[in-house]
Design a protein around this nucleic acid. Structure first.
Lengths: 293, 293
DNA sequence: TAGCGTTACGTAGGCCGTAACAATC
DNA sequence: GATTGTTACGGCCTACGTAACGCTA
């Protein structure tokens, strides 16, 4: 028993005529006849009385038609629900943020979204770049900020801007280091991260070109911790330039002149889910903010 | 979107595991995977999050699962209803009667049925033998008494007994007629029926063998009318022997000795519907009454 | 490596449409 | 003869199972 058979059942019961019902459903009379016959056979009851005039509901058929309608009705509701989940603009959106909320200007994003899609409630969830694609797939987040490119086919990503990255040297190690060659810099103690932070991946790529290896001393995952460790003179570190300049202003560190890097800031979502109204609305809001076509 | 896909959706959501769900449903993992994929594609939403552990409902899936359950639930109810209409012993039964209710002992039948199937309400509807099969097909009656054999494939019939039929001669025409030859009898005025009454069909068959034709004078459909017409001396008639004997007792007619005929009394229903509980129960009650194996 | 879901591919069942058929009015 | 539903038959789609694959822990 399948839904298409029940739809056939209903259509024939309404027209009382196999030919016209078949036209309505854009199939042949023959096919429709088979569908009805198969349904009757499976249920073990005669649904129609075949008369020269056409098909008339049997008494059993009259009792079954409401049940059939209930099934088809429920299936239509299910389809409708699926449509709603696509197109509705009320609901929630989990946003993965990979860095300082202040830097991402989260409050500005919230403001734009509450203007454009008032029904949507936003949640911000911490998501390191290397976790982003996994969290998207697991639907722990619906969209996620990230550094660098994401190569996976199943994930769509929009480039928002380029971020300057630089090397900071704690003030205690800074004497004459500002213009030092990289070979020396590499041997100094570094504050590092274990896992695929894009800053470090990219930096390592550049070092590998010169056959150099860093000397990591301390590991830290969170940016604020890195910042504190630099302040305390533990070691050199990679850092967004705006953060580095803060440290410079505080007199806690200097920026090494021998290195410059730009890394892209992007927003990602599942390829499949690009078309969902809430997600596409969010992406559009970011496009406006970052002035992307 | 079909019911088997929704059943797959539910099964996978419950096990959280495609392999086990496939085993439960006795299909291959591959087939089940395709079913889910097709459903997701048609609805345009991702129902599951594919994890190394297995299949976990997505947030959209969680919202859809109740709708899917509603559809499957409704379909099960429909199947159940079909079963009920087969097996239930409460409901109504329309019984076609082709002759005198007293002769059929309708009251005795009613008694047996109310004992054996208390929930069934019986309706008796007049149905001439020649109308019986049409009325069965149109479900105006569910079972019908009839004379003679019914040759149609779609109709099942049970022989109940053999009924004696004879020719009655009104007392006014009866002088020396009791032992008259058929050639003379045929020329007398007859009370006749226009349409296929099995008595007359069978009688005509016999006459045809002798190349004789009757002389019909008056037409009547209803047996009681025939009886009255015989009483009033209008003409000869075919009649059940028990009725004829009544007329003889009243001194209103005599029975012609030159003819004897037995015709079967049967009960018919649609071949398809033999297995329905109410109908088979009714047939069994009649089998007991008429002592048929 | 073990367990999971996905993909590839050949097969087979069944659903479809055309057309001939049967039945009724 | 017109209109109805049924049956026969051939084509094609698609759902299926087997098996190889990719992924993650």
């Amino acid at each position: 028993m399948e839904i298409y058979q029940l739809e056939a059942f209903i259509a024939v019961s309404e027209t009382g005529n196999l030919t016209r019902a078949a036209q309505m459903m854009n199939i042949s009379q023959s096919a429709l006849s088979s569908q009805i016959k198969a349904l009757e056979r499976e249920l073990g009851v005669g649904l129609f009385i075949r008369q020269p005039r056409g098909m008339q509901l049997s008494r059993v058929g009259e009792k079954m038609i409401s049940e059939a309608r209930a099934v088809v009705q429920a299936s239509l509701q299910m389809k409708q629900k699926a449509m709603d989940l696509h197109t509705r603009i009320s609901g929630s959106l989990n946003i993965g943020i990979n860095t300082d909320p202040k830097f991402l200007q989260v409050s500005d994003i919230s403001k734009r979204m509450t203007e454009q899609m008032p029904g949507v409630s936003l949640s911000y969830i911490e998501s390191r770049t290397f976790e982003t694609s996994q969290m998207l797939r697991q639907e722990k987040i619906d969209v996620g900020f990230h550094y660098g490119r994401i190569q996976e086919d199943s994930i769509f990503s929009l480039t928002l801007s380029m971020v300057d990255i630089c090397v900071v040297i704690p003030i205690g190690m800074a004497k004459h280091m500002e213009h030092e060659r990289i070979e020396t810099i590499a041997t100094l103690p570094w504050v590092w991260t274990r896992h695929g932070c894009p800053f470090h991946l990219e930096f390592q790529n550049r070092l590998r070109g010169k056959n150099l290896k860093l000397n990591p001393v301390t590991e830290a995952v969170e940016e604020n911790i890195v910042k504190e460790l630099v302040k305390s003179g533990t070691g050199l570190a990679l850092m967004r330039k705006d953060e580095a300049l803060e440290l410079v202003r505080e007199g806690a560190a200097i920026i090494w002149n021998g290195f410059e890097m730009k890394i892209l800031l992007g927003i990602a979502c599942l390829e499949k889910r690009q078309s969902e109204k809430i997600i596409s609305g969010f992406l559009n809001a970011l496009k406006e903010k970052y002035k992307i076509s």
